[in-house]
Design a binder for these strands. Structure first.
Length: 799
DNA sequence: TCATAAAACCTTTTT
DNA sequence: GGTTTTATGA
């Protein structure tokens, strides 16, 4: 065997500089299909951008022949910047976007092929739900136990599997009234969308696939254009997205392109030359698959080699992000998922700090710890923007925000209650949509009586009936309001509104967005009406609308040619992570789902409790607990140097307090990796000494889990209880995390004196609630008035 | 038709 | 705890 020493070749491309051998291979491999299995923090974004840059740099591809799919718009923008930085020039014509944005772009261009207008509206989840609600009411399906959430979930699921009304009907059992009615709802929903010239989120993907399958000539155009397709976060693609990629990577039927026009408008030359299918690169990590609830199918990545025969697989396991302690914890946790290919992340940067654990008495206590630690970190020189706080559910932000405000910490909540979800903003958008797409009745209904014009439900129903009878749109019916026997005031109101809309519609394709919005607001008196009420909340709403005007102005500056339609598209597809502003000096708060793909110097993973992480709802889902574990894994691996895991012993939900137990996942982390500032074990009962772990857990379950038991079939509760009892006790009696404080049957009445570990001595002023949920209000001598859960607070009664 | 009040429902996670 | 739906009367 000969060893050839390989000194760095002088001619080596700078695009490969600093890459390890695996990464280089992923950049340089050329072939039909490439799967990059990229563990967390293994530099996959770097690999992807360099791969794109190298394709362009070597003249193997024009920028316009590249289609790269990312998970968020922000990731797309970042990738574009990085590619352009590598190439040292703008790479015009690359499509780097999310699945949804790419599909909207294709659909706007091709919608007219199948009966849609290019000015179609995109219904977000709230719009879809509003429509489904209307249909359920109209068909009186609520009597059969149909809820909006169920129906919306089922329709979304079907669409993600590329089912439509017909294909569903084929497999439906018509003897089952439930199924017949669901089919009616589904059919009506589909009909409503198409007559409104609207797509819902799932349609954007599904209808694009349909378009490609039904119109091979259209498909061929895109198959020919995109020669290199790259998909990031492939483990979270659903069946529809998978099918879309399959369609795009088919060999174009070149005979269909004869005489077709290319994207630059020129007639394609030599359309009959056979073309290879586009090359496909996918990047993913099945350990980070966390969107099964949205139809993501892990098989897409697991079976990639079967789907694309001859595919090359490259594994990236070296981690460039985190310390070894953080990685060891992550490896230990994910190792408990058994149906996976074992892979171990490693690093060369050393162990780093220990993970810090903290157990609060309440969620506020937990939040206070986090706030204190952040203050401390900031004093040590960590920027606020390098710190993130993660949680499982959006509801958890409340306690965090309260404490952060009190501690004067600058923070920003990603996702959550979005600006665009505010009623007044949706109203303003209602006007814009009504102008852009006159066929959309949802937008019209939303604004019909905003501001108040005296057009109520009765008037609206009369208009709708007239429209249905005449077979015209609601908008057209409004133009004939004088033929329906309304009073003079209502007639004038309807005609006035529709006149404004019609007039502004004329310039919808050409006028700048801010001008359109301002024209609508002024002519309808929307903002004025808000200001006139004298209600401070309405004043705030008016300011929000003004803020929207400012945003349209910004959009105009960013995008001088941008049309109303493009503005509406952009705003309907913003993701939570898109709101991140890297230059802001604030701590970021977000859900674990939003955190995917991001990284921070210091990460606080909060609410690591049974019922929350894993979430209660996941227990009844197949694969639920494993997916929750991956979610935990994703959270851990976001941290570069500092990781904090925190939980609370009690958590308030729906206004009442319940006992929380440490998450099972905490016990999967080797104890020596965690430095517990206050462990669940340390907080154990001062009042009683009996082993409480099992008792406490059961109480925790019945307390937090009442929702689960209520929704189960009658037999299921007993079964679940038996299953719980059968679990080995040892799983729960871990020295570190297995017990909670328990004051046993301690009862307090007003007037009792108590001593609290943190707050000192105090006097009980009132007791509310019964049994394990009783809460004492205590006036402390120095710490003020507090509300404490009698059963769990670190208190003792003074006699 | 609309304002106020009582009541119900809620909470996984998201493009 | 907070939003949203429904009931009631003006």
């Amino acid at each position: 065997m000969t060893f050839i020493l390989d000194p760095a070749e002088p001619t080596e491309s700078p695009l490969l500089a600093g890459l390890n051998p695996r990464q280089r291979e992923a950049v340089e491999y050329r072939g039909q299909a490439l799967l990059i299995v990229a563990g967390a923090g293994s530099g996959k974004t770097s690999v992807l951008t360099r791969r794109i840059a190298s394709l362009i740099d070597s003249r193997e591809a024009w920028p316009s022949q590249i289609l790269a799919i990312t998970f968020t718009n922000k990731a797309a923008a970042e990738m574009r910047e990085r590619v352009e930085a590598l190439l040292g020039q703008a790479a015009q014509g690359m499509w780097i976007s999310t699945f949804h944005s790419a599909c909207v772009r294709i659909l706007r261009r091709e919608a007219e092929h199948f009966g849609y207008g290019k000015n179609f509206t995109i219904y977000d989840s709230a719009d879809s739900r509003a429509l489904i609600k209307r249909i359920i009411k109209q068909l009186e399906a609520d009597a059969f136990g149909f809820t909006v959430g169920q129906v919306a979930g089922k329709i979304s699921k079907l669409k993600n599997e590329l089912s439509d009304v017909e294909s569903y009907a084929r497999g439906a059992n018509f003897n089952d009234p439930q199924e017949r009615i669901f089919l009616d709802i589904f059919r009506e929903y589909t009909r409503s969308l198409s007559s409104a010239n609207a797509f819902d989120f799932d349609d954007l993907i599904g209808q694009t696939v349909y378009l490609f399958r039904a119109f091979p000539a259209v498909a061929a155009l895109y198959q020919r254009r995109f020669r290199h397709i790259l998909v990031d976060e492939y483990q979270d693609t659903n069946h529809a997205q998978y099918a879309l990629i399959r369609e795009l990577t088919r060999s174009p039927q070149t005979d269909l392109l004869e005489g077709a026009t290319g994207f630059d408008g020129s007639v394609l030359k030599d359309p009959t030359r056979p073309l290879d299918p586009a090359s496909l690169t996918v990047v993913g990590d099945s350990d980070q698959s966390i969107y099964a609830f949205r139809g993501a199918d892990i098989r897409n990545i697991v079976e990639f080699e079967r789907d694309y025969v001859g595919a090359k697989v490259v594994l990236l396991e070296q981690n460039y992000r985190s310390t070894q302690n953080i990685l060891s914890a992550a490896n230990a946790v994910i190792g408990n998922n058994f149906d996976r290919i074992d892979k171990k992340l490693f690093t060369t940067v050393g162990d780093g700090e220990k993970i810090i654990g903290f157990t609060g008495y309440s969620q506020h206590d937990e939040a206070q710890f986090i706030a204190d630690e952040i203050t401390e970190l900031h004093q040590q020189g960590v920027e606020y923007r390098d710190i993130a706080v993660f949680y499982r559910t959006n509801a958890q932000t409340r306690a965090l925000e309260e404490i952060f405000i009190r501690s004067a910490l600058p923070y920003r909540v990603l996702g959550g209650t979005k600006f665009y979800e505010r009623a007044e903003i949706k109203d303003a958008f209602g006007y814009l949509i009504a102008v852009a797409n006159p066929d959309d009745p949802m937008a019209l209904r939303r604004i019909m009586n905003v501001p108040k014009r005296g057009i109520g439900g009765v008037t609206e129903a009369t208009l709708q009936n007239w429209a249905d009878r005449e077979g015209v749109t609601l908008r057209e019916a409004m133009r004939h309001a004088d033929e329906m026997g309304f009073g003079p005031k209502i007639t004038a109101a309807v005609l006035g509104l529709v006149a404004v809309l019609d007039e502004v519609s004329l310039v919808a394709d050409t006028a700048p967005v801010p001008e359109i919005l301002i024209a609508l607001l002024e002519r309808t008196g929307f903002v004025e009406a808000l200001r006139a009420t004298g209600n401070p909340q309405d004043e705030a709403r008016a300011e929000n609308v003004e803020e929207l005007v400012a945003q349209t102005r910004e959009y105009r500056v960013r995008n001088p040619e941008g049309t109303l339609l493009e503005f509406l598209t952009e705003t309907s597809l913003v993701a939570a992570a898109d709101e991140l502003d890297d230059s802001s000096g604030t701590v970021s708060l977000m859900t674990l789902h939003t955190a995917k793909g991001l990284e921070y110097e210091a990460v606080f993973l909060t609410g690591v409790e049974e019922g929350l992480l894993p979430h209660q709802m996941s227990a009844s889902e197949p694969g639920g607990p494993a997916e929750e574990r991956r979610l935990f894994y994703v959270g851990i691996t976001r941290a570069r140097r500092r990781l904090y895991l925190s939980l609370a012993m009690t958590r308030a939900q729906f206004g009442d307090v319940s006992v929380a137990m440490p998450s099972r996942y905490l016990q999967e982390i080797p104890p020596e990796l965690i430095d517990w500032r206050q462990s669940p074990g340390m907080a154990t009962s001062r009042g009683g000494t009996q082993p409480r772990a099992l008792n406490a857990r059961r109480e925790g379950f019945t307390g937090v889990g009442s929702g689960y038991e209520r929704s189960s079939a009658p037999g299921a509760t007993a079964l679940a209880r038996a299953a719980r009892a059968a679990q080995p006790k040892t799983e729960w009696t871990n020295k570190v995390t297995g017990t909670v404080r328990d004051n046993g049957d301690l009862t307090l009445v007003a007037g009792d004196r108590i001593r609290h570990v943190d707050f000192g001595d105090g006097k009980v002023t009132a007791v509310t609630g019964v049994g394990p949920k009783s809460i004492a209000e205590v006036q402390f001598e120095s710490a003020g008035r507090k509300r404490l859960l009698v059963k769990l607070a670190p208190i003792e009664k003074l006699s």
